[in-house]
Write a protein that binds this DNA or RNA. Structure first.
Lengths: 216, 216
DNA sequence: TTTCAGAAAATGTGATCACAAAAAGAGATT
DNA sequence: AATCTCTTTTTGTGATCACATTTTCTGAAA
């Protein structure tokens, strides 16, 4: 693995799980030092991250984690619903019984992580649940786009996690798995849409605005 | 504008209008020479283009324009439909009468370009038509994703254009504009979906397979 | 205390170079 | 003619440096 790949994956993962707050600025040399490398591969990684909306190069050449407004948040959630219900529908026909079994196992692991109280681990497991469904499609062209949206939601997700004391399960995963077993494409799509809407999407504009104020 | 930006935009535009064929390999030094710059900014541009699916870094570190299979083509078209009908629906409420007028003007310019026989210009005008609708949304978070799909379709689009002798209009733009004027979100979404499906999406799998054979 | 000008430091940019890996070519062998 | 091996060339990678811009710091003036 190249230095560039390492830097890209490290940063990407950090942003995805909310380790950076909106508005945070990063420097090439700072990250290069932190990752014990040099500006060249780090700058490439940062440039790639801007391409997928995870970071932003401002006019004055500062590099920042994008700000999120309530309106933008709502756009991102509705985009998640459009993209992921589409990807789920497209994956149904390709899923084997064995794969559905594995997906159910990952769903169980989410509850385990929640009981363990590890928010980041629960989040990663939840993403794995969704990813396993969508990537059953042999041509998962939607997956990179979905991950781009996840990355853009990452920073506010980090803020939300800071202010959640009690973790509890609010998902439609069981419903989705049942629909997968029945090969019911519309039911799968509906379950995924509801899962997103009632999960992080369940934060209404006021709640998001409150979170963003707390972060500022 | 930085050297990197110039390289990125040049390459991006070239791929978007089908100037590169699937499987074409590019070299950093080659492009650096062609663009009269050096490897560093070119490599950054190429890395960004891989992030959005326009290029691919292979295992052996070769950089190529991705191959397209009939199945992948079909996935990309259905993704276009899902993304763009969503974006169009979300834009309707934000469009002013004046903007709709401008969109209609761009639609006229498409026909002008087609009569002039300039395929690339017609293609660019067509993209402008779609872009103007989607970016009416003040938070056009879907637009970068849509352009990513356009980029991935670019290479096969270039092949298709090589084998089209006669240009003719097959679009639902008029229908979409009328629906915009009526503020009918569903009708707009349907018109856009039909426009994509009957346009480039109208190539069936056999036609695509034929095109790809011709390109090989 | 606030404001402003100049100096110093920090930062992004891009060209260059050394290195390693991969590809291409040349020549011998079967 | 085909295959293999060794050499040469090409190519991606990453560290470094010089430069220009931006930001931050410092101190004087209002």
């Amino acid at each position: 693995m190249t230095t560039h790949d390492y830097a890209f994956n490290r940063l990407r993962q950090a942003i995805m799980v909310g380790a950076f707050r909106p508005g945070t600025s990063v420097t090439i040399r700072g990250l290069a030092e932190a990752l014990e490398s040099s500006p060249t591969p780090v700058r490439e990684a940062l440039r790639q991250l801007t391409s997928i909306g995870a970071l932003q190069f401002l006019e004055n050449r500062r590099i920042v984690v994008p700000h999120i407004t309530p309106a933008r948040f709502e756009e991102l959630i509705s985009l998640r619903i459009a993209l992921e219900s589409h990807a789920a529908r497209r994956a149904v026909a390709h899923l084997s019984e064995r794969q559905i079994q594995q997906i159910a196992a990952v769903d169980d692991s989410i509850e385990t992580e929640i009981r363990g109280g590890d928010k980041v681990a629960a989040l990663i497991a939840n993403q794995a649940f969704h990813r396993m469904i969508y990537t059953a499609n042999p041509d998962p062209v939607a997956m990179p786009l979905i991950e781009s949206v996840w990355l853009q939601l990452g920073p506010i997700l980090g803020i939300a996690m800071e202010h959640v004391t009690e973790l509890y399960v609010v998902d439609r995963h069981r419903e989705a798995i049942e629909a997968l077993r029945r090969r019911d494409e519309e039911a799968v799509a509906d379950a995924i849409a509801a899962d997103i809407r009632e999960g992080i999407g369940g934060f209404d504009q006021q709640a998001v605005a409150r979170l963003l104020r707390l972060a500022a």
